[in-house]
Nucleic acid binder design. Structure first.
Lengths: 283, 283
DNA sequence: CTGAAAGCGCTAACAA
DNA sequence: TTGTTAGCGCTTTCAG
């Protein structure tokens, strides 16, 4: 029958099964500017590509950190086929209704009823920081992610462990994954710990900002201070000095999360994607 | 009635009006890699945001330049609420069915039955090239867009006109908007016209590649050769030297195109968005 | 001009 | 197992 050109009608099916017709991508953040982050663009592109194969669409929503109720409102809205939460926090995930089970996924930390897909930033961080130690650095500072974002915790632990092993003291400054914050963080770090010989930022964007801030301070990279990032974004290799970093397979992660939701795969638990070190000039 | 919490059901309406429930973004390109371009991510992000407000989803499709029939297949598929064609060509737009009128828009050149939204790259190019001339450059080369992409034609005309006025000879090398092509193009340009004193690329990504290629050649920027781009992407200001370029309000353009399609506004003709010069260090 | 009814293409529940 | 039917929430048509 399908051989004679039959194509199922998605809206008719959606109507009767009362299972919507679109995949919502909800990004949690302090301001709406999170939606402008290229990271979100990459997640969205992958999701929209997966969705296209299944004749489904994707919509993008900002969930203010201060108004998590908007997540449950979104989750409860009719017409919703699935939900992917980006940068989730446990309290946020707690608001998603139980009956969405099997149709929600998290890119970041998960929850008992929400499977998660994320980069293995523990081993990624471990690899970068060990590289710094191996190349003779001992007074290594770290610019972390936003303090409310729990998925950075694993990276911080890894950083602390390696520093402990090599006899260094943790020097952590909070970041927010932006370039601007990186530049300021670099200045803060050098003011507070002038003998710092390496800075690791949990985001390439921030690392680029660190490079910029250090440049303004007249600090040479990697001569005086080594700089390493996380993500391996396209521009990392184009920066001067080219940025040493570790990969973040965003496309793979987002594709898996979107597919899990759309195919109603009853995935559970956390799936981590490996990150591999990319050594360039900055460290 | 709406005051007592009534929310219309999108899929029921879509079923009866046989007007689908998703907005398709079709990107024309030689290879599937076009979907990875950050430009597409920005268009998609804006469209998905607009779509979210109307409880609609967005899907992403690659239309191979060699298989334009896939565009008409997509355009004819059920479940389609609207279509935004990115990087359109006249032959491609000719394949979209007439009955989609009012539900199609182009980001790039349009067609009689397809309204278009694009950056005014004629005046943008004019501004950049005049800046180059004003700062003493006379032997200015240009790395254009792919030859099959008609929306670059206006930029090329503007470039040729300014050069003609200032007594220069056009030196055009075809590009493809990628970094890799920019690096190669720089080498080609310097081999073919060794006295070149400025390079204008119709894309910041390409300009960044030119910077890289020139660096490899030992050519100083802007000392020996000035470099200017087009788009003002986030990294333009972070490159060393910081890239002189002209803006491209991608978000505004994509938002307008998506809104026009979703609101069934019978927009017609071409809408151009202004581009403004951003002078930094490279030119 | 207001109100009832038919039916869009499917799925699920039921009957044979 | 296989076949039939009711009905999802809306719009459009047609009767009152």
């Amino acid at each position: 029958m399908a051989a004679l050109g039959y194509v199922p009608d998605a809206s008719a099916r959606a109507l009767v099964t009362r299972t919507g017709t679109r995949l919502a991508i909800a990004v949690i953040g302090r301001t709406a500017a999170v939606l402008d982050d290229p990271y979100v663009g990459r997640v969205l592109t992958s999701a929209a590509h997966v969705a296209a194969e299944r004749e489904v669409g994707v919509s993008l929503h900002w969930i203010p950190l201060a108004d998590l109720a908007s997540l449950s409102r979104l989750a409860g809205s009719r017409g919703l086929g699935g939900l992917v939460v980006v940068n989730p926090t446990p309290p946020a995930l707690a608001t998603v209704p139980r009956d969405l089970r099997g149709r929600v996924a998290a890119v970041g930390v998960g929850a008992p009823h929400v499977p998660s897909f994320d980069v293995d930033n523990r081993s990624g961080t471990d690899g970068v920081v060990r590289h710094l130690v191996r190349t003779g650095r001992r007074r290594i500072a770290m610019v972390s992610g936003p303090d409310w974002l729990p998925c950075g915790a694993r990276a911080i632990e890894a950083y602390q462990r390696v520093l402990h092993e090599s006899g260094g003291e943790p020097r952590i400054v909070p970041g927010d994954f932006t370039v601007a914050r990186g530049a300021k963080a670099a200045i803060e770090i050098m003011a507070r710990w002038p003998d710092t010989d390496a800075v690791f930022a949990l985001s390439d964007l921030t690392a680029l900002g660190v490079l910029d801030g250090l440049h303004g301070l007249g600090v040479r990279v990697p001569g005086d201070v080594a700089v390493a990032g996380f993500d391996d974004i396209a521009f990392a290799g184009l920066a001067r000095p080219a940025l040493t970093t570790t990969t973040h397979p965003v496309e793979k992660i987002a594709t898996a999360a979107a597919a899990a939701v759309l195919d109603r795969r009853d995935t559970s638990g956390a799936t981590f994607y490996p990150s591999t070190l990319v050594v360039r000039e900055s460290a």
